[in-house]
Write a protein that binds this DNA or RNA. Structure first.
Length: 478
RNA sequence: CGGGGUGUAGCGCAGUUGGUAGCGCGCUUGGUUUGGGACCAAGAUGCCGCAGGUUCGAAUCCUGUCACUCCGACCA
């Protein structure tokens, strides 16, 4: 099928990617703006995507032994201040509550930008013995960070996320947890969101405020910019010491436990849009699509089309999130509409089909049409949903591969990006923060991560030419 | 936080020299249509972002302010 653009009121990606993005979030009815900058309404269609993501992730968390809890949204200033690096990292972007009613508060309260401090306070109260460990907690809440530049989903002042906070008897156990959760995020992105990611470690300068080490999954968007899709942190016992969390270990000696935290947010919805979307609108991965298949009855006035379409809906309802659109809009309008909303599979059913006991199935990502017997439609739709997932993943991976370049010098980096556009650049690094900063300064591309899967591209640092320690993935980030 | 752009009907926009507001889409009603954003007819919809100022008179000129947006800087 051709890839002709069918929707006129979406700005083309190539023309203006940022405008394309905001057109999509508005036209596909994912968000609405509000009178507070950076605070958005997540509309039913957008929220349904989030609910599906939550449901899948939550069961992955439960299956690995985690429990959900809910912390308050306010953090007293004194509590936030307990861990020095942590407060320095977050202070510039916290919102403060200074009054209760008309009374000025004794101590101002920060609206949580993240909840490490609250979990730590709680852990200090409930952990006494090695028998109390580990605690594997998670919460689904919103947090607030007073960002200067905001964009729907990608960077909003309030956003929804989950934050896992775990506490362990040994460093080893905490490190394993950090890696396990990073793996779960990667699995989720690839299997549910059809979004290929690179697992790696953040550099010292890029790690979480207060962490010993930070791991991340990085995805490449359609325009060649990188998106940090999820992070997992190992804290060592630094927070435990700052918050005086201790327990009696197996030798009955006082010990400090080791902690982790990890999170993904509604930013992933932005990632889906920029990974799979095209000039006709959204393309949603079937696992999280609010509507997986839409039935478009054609020429409803003729014969029993509508009745047949409703039967089809009933049949599919058992195993697929299906919707029938029997509104008065023309078929052409509906085709364009549901493509824009990213519905993975469309089922056309008209008089001609009914005569032949068939329907037409069209997949969103490639607009391929298949004629299917009505006797086999349930299987066929499920098969097509799988094809859409695989097709989206393959396309995204192809884009990432095409935009991944190996470079040996910063000049080469600049040249490659100028000629071919933004992307992931794989280049060797000596490990010094000076070089890391210099690369960003010269090329505009910062270090995204030190990938777990290493390769020896050269033996010299891309910046200073001294012996290289690791391969780093560089790129411009959202 | 620095630089640019934009605020007029639900959405997208026009509005000339300052004279009291219009177009397209959408919406409502009725009819004809229906396999890639249909057509005809009749309707409804405005604090011209907000606050001052100039003027007989301001969507239009001036000042301020707020919001949105893009590009930087900043940002687990």
């Amino acid at each position: 099928m051709d890839n002709k653009k069918m929707v006129d009121d979406i700005t083309s990606m190539d023309e203006d990617f940022a405008k394309w993005y905001t057109d999509i979030v508005k036209k596909a009815e994912l968000v609405g703006y509000t009178s507070v900058k950076g605070c958005m309404v997540i509309r039913p269609y957008g929220y349904a995507v989030w609910e599906n993501m939550q449901r899948i992730l939550d069961s992955m968390f439960k299956n690995t032994g985690h429990e959900n809890v809910c912390m308050p949204m306010f953090i007293p200033e004194s509590l936030l201040n307990k861990e020095k690096d942590h407060v320095e990292g977050f202070a510039p972007e916290v919102a403060w509550v200074t009054h209760g009613g008309s009374e000025k508060l004794e101590e101002r309260l920060c609206v949580r930008p993240t909840s490490e401090t609250l979990f730590c306070e709680h852990y200090s109260q409930i952990i006494h013995s090695y028998r109390d460990l580990p605690k594997l907690y998670n919460q689904w809440v919103s947090v607030v960070r007073w960002e200067k530049t905001t964009r729907p989903f990608l960077r909003s002042r309030e956003f929804l996320w989950q934050e896992g906070h775990t506490i362990h008897e040994t460093a080893q156990q905490a490190i394993e947890e950090t890696e396990r959760m990073l793996g779960i995020y990667a699995q989720f992105c690839e299997e549910a969101l059809a979004m290929p990611v690179i697992k790696g470690k953040k550099t010292e300068s890029d790690k979480f405020a207060g962490a010993v080490s930070t791991y991340a999954i990085e995805a490449l968007m359609h325009d060649g910019k990188a998106l940090q899709a999820g992070t997992s942190h190992y804290f060592g016992d630094g927070f435990a010491r700052a918050f005086d969390i201790t327990f009696s270990d197996r030798q009955n000696k006082k010990a400090y436990p080791h902690q982790t935290s990890w999170g993904v947010s509604t930013r992933l919805i932005g990632g889906i849009i920029m990974t799979h979307g095209d000039d006709n609108g959204l393309a949603l991965p079937p696992a999280v699509a609010p509507i997986q298949a839409v039935i478009i009855p054609i020429a409803v006035h003729k014969g029993n089309v509508l009745e047949k379409a409703r039967q089809l809906e009933q049949q599919l309802n058992a195993c697929v999130r299906v919707k029938i659109d029997d509104s008065d809009n023309t078929p052409g309008w509906k085709f364009a509409q549901y493509e824009m909303k990213g519905v993975p599979v469309r089922i056309e059913l008209g008089p001609r089909d009914i005569e032949n006991n068939q329907c037409v199935i069209v997949t969103r990502h490639n607009r391929q049409k298949t004629v299917v017997s009505l006797d086999d439609v349930v299987n066929a739709v499920q098969q097509k949903l799988k094809e859409v997932h695989d097709g989206l993943y393959a396309k995204a991976l192809e884009n990432r591969n095409r935009r991944t370049y190996d470079c040996k010098t910063t000049d080469e980096m600049i040249q490659v990006m100028a000629q071919k556009g933004d992307g992931f650049i794989r280049a060797m690094w000596c490990g010094s923060e000076e070089c890391e900063a210099a690369v960003k300064e010269k090329t505009g591309a910062g270090s995204r991560c030190i990938p777990f899967e290493q390769e020896q591209i050269s033996d010299k640092c891309v910046c200073c030419s001294k012996p290289a320690k690791t391969m780093v993935i560089w790129g411009k980030a959202y």
